[in-house]
Amino acid sequence: MTSTYSPDGSAHSGGARPGAARVPRWSVLGAATVLALGVQAVLALWVAPADANQGDAQRLMYIHVPAAWLAYLAFTVTAVASVLWLWPRTRSVKWDLVAGASAEVGVVFTALTLALGSLWGRPVWGTWWEWDARLTTTAVLLFLYLGYLALRRTGDSPDERGRRCAIAALIAFADVPVVHFSVTWWETLHQEATVFNPKLETNITGTMAWTLLWSVVAFTILYVYLVRSRTQLAEMQEGLEERELANAIAERIETGESAVTV
């Protein structure tokens, strides 16, 4: 696949997503997310021109690239939050919950990246899947963070879980630069990055470039919304578990006291 995109072939091809996701709570951020994604879908599907080489298949770039960007962003936030949890001076259960929330969102977008890449690869490469370095390292990334999420569900004290998961998150994060640079380090079927390539040459111009930029911004707003909601849910669940534990202890004490009294 070539690495530049344009309607006239001077720069060459790539994908985005429709908004319309219902929000659990209508808020300014939720409204901004829906609006941004709606505009993004219009730009990607109707306003941006078709690529001279790939035709309409290139429109998948406007969702494939932002999904991959969000996966990078999400796992970076997970790594940073994990370091903040491990660092004694900044340790707070909040960082552990943010790390978990961001990793979950990252897993959703990594899976989407792979699925969208497969949908794009079929018309332009002639195959749904290749054991190419970029595709393989991305699949490994998905399974690493699925393992991380599984680890979060193991029953343990919040401290023990936090330490174990923070270390696992940092180990898993090592795969993120490998995924990004895989197209530089190895001969791959996957093209080099359109923007953040080693030469920092932007291989996309005009309306296509603006549409891609808007897509990345819209997905980033979506990420903030999703992580905020997921963290809020985790905080509520954490609080509920603590209260249930406190209630169980209180009941035990009451029962013990009445047994002694009787």
């Binding site: 997503r17 429709p18 996701a21 599907l45 998948l60 969702i63 969208l116 949908l119 794009w120 018309p123």
Partner: peptide, 11 residues
């Protein structure tokens, strides 16, 4: 069809 499938899947 691939494009519509991709956007529908994402949505």
């Amino acid at each position: 069809g691939y494009v519509i499938a991709g956007f529908a899947l994402t949505g």
